[in-house]
Every structure is written in C-alpha cells, then in structure tokens.
C-alpha cells in the first residue's frame, strides 16, 4: 500500500501524533437548515460533521466512517449532496447546509420518509437520515431514474441492515406515487 494513500493508514486509531502544542482554533458562523449558528473556538481541523454533531449537538447527521465512504453524514451543501465528514467546517462558513431536518418543509422529502417507514426501508435506522437526503436529492434531479441508476446513485450510502431491497422498494413507491401509478 503506497504511503500517500491516506485512507489506508494502518491502526490510525493508535496514532499519537498530535503532540502537546496548543491546537489551532477558529470561530465562524454556520447556516444549517435555515438557522444561523455561531461556532466559537473550534479546532481548525474539524470536519463539518464533527462540528454539527459535537459542537452544535445537531445529531440528526450521523457519523459512521468519517472518511466519506458510507454516506451516513450526507447533507446538502449549497444544494449539492456531500459527505459532511469530508468538508472542513471552517470552510462551510458562507454555505447553506441542509440536513434531513432541513428537508422537512418540502414535499418530496416527506414522501420519501413516509415510503421508508411504510416499505420497511428502516431497520436500525442509522443510515436512514443520510439515505433520505440522498434519495431526495436523486429524485429531485432524476425523478424517473431506473433501478440501475438508483442503485448507482445510492452507492455512496451504505446500509448494513436491509440489503437495500426495501430501500429500493421505497424509492420505487415514491416514483410510482408521483407518476400517479
């Protein structure tokens, strides 16, 4: 494994590198789900995910891999679907962050959420908030996506419980509802 591949640092949890120098901190504002939040003295290296969860206690955004590989922390950043663990929080200062909670007022997300419950797409539910954001984003862009496209579009969101069968059924149900089928 080449050393530059940051994703494959063996035993990264054992990493003791940070040292004892004072850690650089920054203060900034974040706009999340329409609300402004002042962040005081956060660690400069903090991801958007960690500031949302640990500083602002916005735990509707889930953390599971913190490497951009599982999609549990999916949010919209200025309308683009991103993994918030790969976004530097201090760099999201003037962006609009939308979590599953911020999708609420709009109709499509509600239909997606209802279909998830009804179709059995939720088991442990830990992937669900990120999955609902991803599905809502997909159906906004590609309302008629076929099965293969839906599968590819959700490949950044790992679910360990369902094997995706009921999640795909929920997506189809929303598509059918909208098409009046």
């Amino acid at each position: 494994m080449p050393a530059t591949d940051t994703g494959s640092t063996p035993g990264a949890a054992l990493e003791l590198a940070p040292g004892l120098a004072p850690e650089p901190t920054v203060s900034y504002q974040l706009r999340v789900d329409g609300a402004r939040h002042q962040v005081h003295g956060a660690w400069l290296g903090a991801s958007l995910l960690s500031v949302l969860r640990d500083t602002l206690d916005l735990t509707t955004v889930k953390d599971a891999c913190e490497q951009g590989r599982c999609g549990s922390c999916s949010v919209l950043l200025d309308g683009r679907l991103v993994a918030s663990c790969t976004v530097l929080a201090a760099d999201a200062e003037d962006a609009e962050v939308t979590s599953v909670a911020g999708l609420r007022p709009s109709g499509p997300a509600r239909a997606v959420a209802a279909a998830f419950v009804r179709e059995g797409a939720v088991q442990c539910g830990y992937c669900t908030p990120g999955m609902v954001v991803a599905v809502t984003d997909l159906l906004a862009r590609r309302p008629d996506a076929d099965d293969g496209e839906v599968r590819e579009a959700l490949s950044g969101n790992i679910c360990r419980c369902t094997g995706y069968g009921r999640i795909l059924a929920a997506v189809r149900a929303v598509q059918d509802e909208r098409a009046g089928r």
């Binding site: 994703g7 035993g11 599971a64 891999c65 959700l154 969101n157 995706y164 069968g165 999640i167």
Partner: peptide, 22 residues
C-alpha cells in the same frame, strides 16, 4: 497480528449496486 484495513476505505461493504434483488 496487525489489522491492515480498519476503515471503510479498504474494508469494503456491499453497496446498492452490488446486492441484487432477492
């Protein structure tokens, strides 16, 4: 004795594109 792949970057899980209909 060293675990080589302790992240979802290199311990890969099936995605929606990998699991077929059942």
């Amino acid at each position: 004795g060293m675990v080589i792949n302790t992240t979802f970057h290199d311990y890969l899980l099936p995605t929606a594109a990998d699991v077929p209909p059942l």
